[in-house]
Write a protein that binds this DNA or RNA. Structure first.
Lengths: 194, 194, 194, 194
DNA sequence: CATGAATGAGAGTTCATTCAT
DNA sequence: GATGAATGAACTCTCATTCAT
């Protein structure tokens, strides 16, 4: 049972994720989930007590899925600047992606609930990315690709710009040119000048 | 009566603003407004048909109130770097302000409603700020305070960082140190490094 | 003042009549009347306490206006059959009239309110018409145009058929052919056969 | 459950019918139904979305129940005039019935909603009755009971008179004598006057 | 475990009616 | 007399949540 049960739970979470993508966080009702999952009202309550609980599970899933942002690349073989460029390209793709993403819902969730730093996915992901970018810049500086006196600061700057772009894309839309411009700008700042 | 009516309308909008500050956008019901204003259900509908309509009026008010971000300083007398620093200090104050601000509600509103660029307050404010910062940087370059080859790009970078910080402050909280660090970073990038 | 007041009252009644024509009786609200008359809410209450009261005034007006259904024809000069035919033609015009008539509202009013026979407009008009038609038939019999043994019965039959047609026209619509057929049928029954 | 559900639906329809009988069509609110059925607000909405939808179901039920107006009589054994007389007697009983009938509500419904001829219950019932009466008259003519040159016209005349009587009974009341008189009149018109 | 009918709280909305001006 | 802002009752409708089966 526990196995079947776990599978059903996972099915609900994944289906719910799609609902959250489309409707955001606050708009979603238990009824929406029930209908999307094609299960009974009571059945849903067997697993989740509220949309909040459900969304937190979606968030956990997201966290697991997203842990490998920089995975797959062997830092020994590839140049740091290439990895960074690749990362930015990934981000760009997401920023311009027309399909509904979970971003809106995630922001809405964190607007609605004060989540302490230690459990705060948004913070954890941000910090993790800053750390990796910092290391990349350090590596780039070492091999002469980059020039940067404050790699931590530069990394943070990049991440805040990305967060700003993300919000911009969700609230007003951004053109590809605008995204390119910003990414160019931050990369340029790292390129060893002279 | 039109005078009294206008006054009451304004009173409702201002009271509603406080409600939106506390509860965000989506959470607010007409009943909340009615109770905050201490008027009757029907009375509110005399002026506004929905929380959306109300919020849009709040937004207009906000726009008028906020039009003088850079006002009050005479560019003839003050150094561009000082004005920019002042602006950032203002932003910092807002970022760290513990009192509930309208920001959450504004973002929620723009998440919930697709607003075309030409009416989009967020976009307009962003663009206006970019323009002014660009001019400030140009002026700073001219008088030797700043060194910058792409003032427009730098201005945009600053604004995206600020937007990123704003979101960070709303979704996870930011420390004063963190804000200082980011502002320092962007200012440093402008200081003429001879 | 009383004069001006009476005029305003009349204006309201006439405007209300048009509203009742379009919306029927039950659907109409005091608000509808206020808006159609372009007067103030309080102003209307100065004259009428409810839509029912108003409609009853409309009904009185209707009664006065309608009293001359058979007027204008001098029975000395014209043949009874012609008058009857003319009357039926009038009725036909009304039955087929595409413009909204008060009929629906009148029926709705009498559905909603039990009106004793002596005040019942519908009954009074019906009885009056029966009486006149009876006299017409009598006259027709006298001058050999008609053959009829029960002029009262025939008159009533005609009026019930007309009432049936009226309801039919209001609830399902009737074609001109259908109306003609019925009128032909009742006229035929009167024509001296042989 | 579908069985229990269907039963409940039927229960609601039947209870609603009684409400419509008493209050007519337009006056009835979902709340009225809820209270009459002694179910919860939400419970009613599980089955019906509006009083209109409910009333249409009541109408369907009525249609099914009413399909056997002439049923039960074997035309082989009984004289056409007897069947017709029986039919008229039935109609008379209904016309004079003091208990609230659905008629008012039905008319109100058809006043409020334009129903195309092909779905129009009132029209369908009228036409069906005309057809049967026509056949009865034909049969009566054949066996010498009746004399009639236009059986279709006579049938229609009868039905329009009945409709007129129905309206009269709903809007002003009719005496038994008045009903008898009308029925006598139309029957007389059919009796072979040799 | 799973179902889905049932409940009732609560949001949105409209109007008849009043009353200070 | 006349106005129209204000009130509050009443209705519609939707969901979170429960519970008998």
């Amino acid at each position: 049972m526990s196995d079947k049960s776990a599978q059903k739970k996972k099915y609900i979470i994944e289906t719910a994720r799609e609902v959250f993508k489309v409707k955001g966080y606050k708009e979603v009702t238990m009824k929406d989930i029930v209908e999307a999952c094609e299960i009974s009202r009571g059945g849903l309550y067997l697993y989740f007590q509220s949309t909040r609980e459900l969304f937190e599970e979606v968030l956990k899933l997201e966290q697991e899925d997203g842990e490998d942002v920089f995975a797959g690349s062997n830092p020994e073989e590839v140049m740091p600047s290439d990895i960074l460029a690749l990362f930015l390209k990934e981000q760009k793709k997401e920023l311009l992606n027309r399909k509904p993403s979970l971003n809106k819902a995630i922001y809405e969730y964190f607007f609605a609930n004060q989540i302490p730093a230690k459990d705060n996915l948004l913070k954890k992901q941000f910090d993790a990315a800053v750390y990796i970018i910092e290391k990349l810049i350090d590596a780039g500086v070492e091999n002469g690709e980059f020039y940067c006196e404050d790699s931590r600061g530069a990394a943070r700057n990049i991440m805040y710009v990305l967060e700003g772009l993300k919000i911009a894309s969700q609230t007003r839309g951004v053109s590809e040119a605008a995204v390119d411009r910003e990414m160019m700008y931050v990369m340029q700042g790292l390129i060893a000048e002279d």
